[in-house]
Design a protein around this nucleic acid. Structure first.
Length: 302
DNA sequence: TGCAGTGTTGCTTC
DNA sequence: CGAAGCAACACTGC
């Protein structure tokens, strides 16, 4: 569920609150989510940590390090860890479906009643304790989230993502170029992380409504004008969603445990059977594209 | 009550 | 080889 706007909101929160902090301990009760990336492994790179020995390796690469800063790459969150001044390890996290980070202060730890979203505590499967007593916790109901520790030389092998939609250098011209030789329906192509990174099921529907393009339209049939409206809609929708601190359909929370606000202004997502906000007499339809629910207005999206 | 459906990704199958 | 299906997991709602 966390797509670009949600991940960006989390990364901004982490940067504001924990950049510069030192990790003094890590714990995990679901070690399947952890991997250690080393230069010696091939071809997928990951060693799954099942033994205590490999967990110790992970621990040794994180504990005692300073969180220099936190970055977003597509839907990935990267904690840049440093010893002295040089960044020497990257903690890479993908939240998948239901993962989210929470920063738990010592006060909140004591105050169990008011602490966090009450149902969240039991889903915390990974924690990093900071020297000031705060905890960075990863809550994940479905346990799909992935955490990897990697050296700089391994990072590009793990994070393979395309253009960032909100990068100022990502122009309309580059956008057109990426799709020039691509085939297939536009919705699935917008969600292809190796082309453009960060758009998922919710925002692809929202962007295509904004652009007045059917999710079933074939990318190879779209003209320049239509490609331009998708490009503009993409930037507009994602920027506004970040401003609203993301969409909370179910589990998503920001690092302080608060819901986002964008779900309140979804134009099509989960609005099946309702009137189109364009007041064009259209009713929002729900279809399946590649096993995923897709929402669109049958009147204005052609 | 039980089973289909739920944001994502990646591996397997055809 | 590319597209489609399904598994990973736990909960909700019909």
């Amino acid at each position: 569920m966390p797509e670009l706007p949600e991940v960006q909101t989390i990364v901004d929160g982490l940067n504001q609150q924990v950049a510069g902090a030192t990790v003094v301990g890590v714990s995990c009760d679901w070690k399947k989510m952890i991997s250690v990336e080393t230069e010696n492994v091939s071809p997928n790179g990951a060693i799954t940590l099942r033994s205590e020995k490999t967990w110790k390796k992970f621990e040794s690469m994180v504990v005692g390090k300073k969180i220099k800063n936190v970055e977003r790459k597509g839907k990935f969150i990267v904690f840049n860890l440093s010893e002295n001044v040089h960044i020497n390890a990257h903690l890479i996290v993908h939240l998948r479906m239901t993962g989210h980070f929470l920063i738990i202060t010592p006060e909140k730890r004591k105050d169990t009643k008011n602490a966090i979203h009450e149902k969240v505590n039991q889903y915390i499967h990974f924690q990093m304790e900071l020297s000031d007593g705060r905890i960075i916790a990863l809550s994940d109901l479905r346990k799909f989230a992935k955490i990897a520790i990697a050296k700089k030389s391994d990072i590009d092998r793990i994070i393979i993502v395309g253009q960032d939609p909100l990068n100022k250098e990502f122009t309309l011209e580059k956008f057109r170029k990426i799709f020039k030789d691509k085939r297939g329906n536009v919705k699935q192509i917008l969600m292809d992380q190796s082309l453009i990174a960060g758009i998922g099921n919710i925002y692809s529907s929202e962007i295509l409504w904004e652009a007045k393009i059917s999710p079933l339209a074939k990318i190879e049939n779209l003209d320049d004008k239509e490609m331009k409206s998708i490009f503009n809609a993409m930037k507009k929708v994602l920027k506004l969603a970040i401003k609203m601190r993301g969409s909370s359909e179910s589990d998503y929370r920001d690092v302080d445990g608060n819901e986002g606000g964008y779900q309140k202004i979804h134009k099509v997502y989960k609005r099946e059977g309702k009137e189109c906000f364009r007041k064009d007499g259209g009713i929002i339809k729900r279809i399946k594209i590649g096993q995923r629910s897709t929402f669109y207005c049958c009147k204005c999206q052609i």
